[in-house]
Computed example of a mutant assay.
Amino acid sequence: MGHLNRTCGLLFKSVCGLLLCSALLPAAWAAHPRTFDLYMPEAPPLSMAGDAGQQGIVADAARQAMTLAGYHMNINVLPWLRAQRTVQHGQDLLIVPLSRTPDRETSYTWIAPIMSMDRAFFTLDKRVDSFAQARRTYRRIAVGMGSAQERKLYDEGFDASQIYPLRIGENPAQMLLLGRVDAWFNGVPESQYIWRQVSKQPLLMSPVLMTTDLYLACSKTCSPRVVSSLRKAVETLHRNGSIQRLLDHYLPAAP
């Protein structure tokens, strides 16, 4: 009988221990929030290496959303094609700033749009008004490698010999100044931001010929709970004006 009582006592303590651990789990999770890897290119003022709060519009917005959702984030700056492949083939990996285009639709889990991006042709002396005119006018067009605008040029019938994909570290503004390319097809705010760093010479811009939303996205295999919490967080940042303040900070009105 004594042996039975000791056995029951040990069992009771084990059950109580399990219940106590279960009760403490939420507190443990709160004390040690999950950390996620976010991948992005060096593409100022959208995303760039730097201290927290100085990493560009979409990177800063992503960090604010992560904090609001109760997560931590590690930044990984990679060439854009490599960043995309890494996230596509991974699990619970985040990426910005990714344009939501038809050819990418099934490769990612789309969390929420952070901002929209207009694209146009930039040149020093040969302004165009359409893709058709650009095909006839430009012999060599600088464009970001692996970008939505590179895909757009191929879709619009540009010959491969006209398209000069740029890798990380190649400065399209300098290439335009040196005459190595005739034009630059790129996001409007990014191009204007970069141009102000390198030249006071007037930069001619075509009408906006392409517009897409830039998303915070995740791997195709991604936790639904994470997607839901980050989507709500980004929506909150839009509603409370946080993302607009980032836009105003990084893209002050031109003089």
Rank of each mutant, 00 (worst) to 15 (best):
G90P: 09
L204T: 00
G146T: 08
C222W: 02
F185P: 07
C16L: 15
V15W: 13
S99Q: 11
C218F: 03
F12R: 04
D159Y: 09
R100W: 03
P45Y: 00
T236A: 07
H89S: 14
A69G: 09
L38R: 02
Q54V: 00
Y215L: 05
W184V: 03
M48N: 00
T212N: 14
G187D: 15
L24F: 15
N240P: 04
S199T: 12
Y193D: 01
T86L: 07
L214V: 02
W184D: 10
W80K: 05
R139A: 13
V188E: 05
S206V: 09
A148L: 06
D51F: 04
P224N: 10
Q88E: 15
R82N: 13
R140T: 11
L176E: 03
I114Y: 01
A120R: 01
L177S: 09
A233C: 03
K152G: 01
N5G: 00
Q54K: 08
R196K: 15
L216P: 01
C21G: 04
L98Q: 12
C222K: 01
R225M: 10
P255Y: 13
A253R: 14
I194C: 01
T35H: 01
H89V: 05
G90S: 11
T236Q: 13
M115T: 03
A61D: 04
H89N: 15
A61L: 05
G157S: 08
G56V: 06
A23E: 04
Q162L: 07
V226E: 09
K126H: 13
D37Q: 08
N76C: 11
M1S: 13
L19S: 07
T123S: 08
L177P: 12
V188Y: 03
L204G: 01
R180Q: 14
M40L: 11
L204R: 09
A254L: 14
K152N: 05
P26C: 06
P252N: 11
D155T: 03
L18I: 11
I243P: 03
L247P: 06
I95E: 07
S14I: 13
P189V: 10
Y164T: 08
D51T: 12
K220S: 09
H32L: 07
A160H: 09
M1H: 14
S116V: 02
P252V: 12
L46V: 00
R119K: 04
T109W: 06
L93T: 01
K13A: 15
R180A: 07
L78M: 15
T123A: 02
W184F: 13
Y164R: 08
R63D: 09
A134N: 08
F131S: 09
G187C: 06
I194E: 12
R82K: 12
G187A: 14
M40S: 03
G17F: 06
L93K: 11
Q162E: 11
